Amino acid sequence: MVVDKYDDHLHLSEFERPHDRDLAQHDDWLELMRVSAAEALDVPVSNTFLKRRGMQRGKAQHGRVSQERYEIEVEENGLKFLVNLSDYVDTGLFLDHRETRMMVCNESLDKDVLNLFAYTGSFSVYAADGGAKSTTTVDLSSRYLDWAERNMELNGFTSAAHNYVQSDIREYLSSLPQEELFDLAIVDPPTFSNSKSTEQDWVIQEHYPELLNSVLNRLRPGGIIYFSTNYRRFKFDESFIRGDCREISKQTVPEDFRNKRIHRCWRIEKY
């Protein structure tokens, strides 16, 4: 069970594990966990949400779990974000990357920043706050891209320098000219994806070298990629990458996370 606290709200995620309870007993146990977490952290039970995060088997993907659209505005390092506590397994803001977001902020001044697999655009918000010359936010989902734009607008970043592109990431990169267009890129792909709108499945272990080298081709000299994955079995071979690769996971996982393997992260500098 993972508990995330957003101001005066809680979001609990149950990760599927073997147990000896029947369905009714397990439902009772989950409700007990929800109420106990609320009481322990002095949060109203009505503000406490619980999701079941089942194992993804075959080509199954996490879908929408509610239509309630229970959204709240939260603040992180002085920036505002909309999180949805009811409708999806994830809320729209991955707390384990708050240190990485600050690193991006600190490197964004006067930079053209590319945010791939952007989800709800939190890295774009930090880049804009850090003084980026421009941001380009790319995601396949129109819903998440709209959410990203709302997050940007919430923080006052509404100029034409901030662009939003709905596209498969590989198709987007292929559509770009073979030119040096960006200074800083964030690449935080899913482990696996098989969207109906794309012809090829995405498998991070197979496709990461091609992806990262394609991004490096669009970076100016000295350009930086922040690359991250939460795939626990991921094996990174820097010999495949045309850049100086340095793992920075110990610096990006926040101190208050007991699970120090919640993600891995690399800072890659173009040769």
Rank of each mutant, 00 (worst) to 15 (best):
A160V: 06
M1H: 10
E31S: 05
D7G: 01
D27M: 13
P190G: 09
Y119E: 04
G131P: 08
N84L: 08
R218M: 10
T198G: 00
P189C: 06
T191K: 13
M152W: 04
K111N: 08
W202H: 09
F94A: 11
K59T: 11
R242N: 15
Q205P: 02
Y271N: 06
K270W: 08
Y70P: 01
N217T: 10
L181A: 03
V65T: 10
N106F: 05
R17K: 14
R57H: 07
W29K: 01
E206D: 14
R17V: 07
T48M: 09
T229C: 05
F182L: 02
G92R: 14
D201L: 02
E149V: 03
V138F: 07
A127I: 04
H62N: 08
D7A: 11
D112I: 00
R220P: 01
R143Y: 12
L173C: 02
S108Q: 03
D168K: 05
Q56T: 07
L79C: 05
E210R: 12
R17Q: 14
E153D: 12
K270M: 03
L93K: 05
W147N: 06
T191E: 09
R246Y: 06
F227C: 08
V215C: 13
A127D: 04
L23I: 11
D110K: 12
E199I: 09
I268H: 06
E255Y: 09
T48C: 10
E39Q: 14
T100I: 01
S195K: 09
S197V: 10
V125I: 07
S228M: 00
A60T: 14
I224W: 00
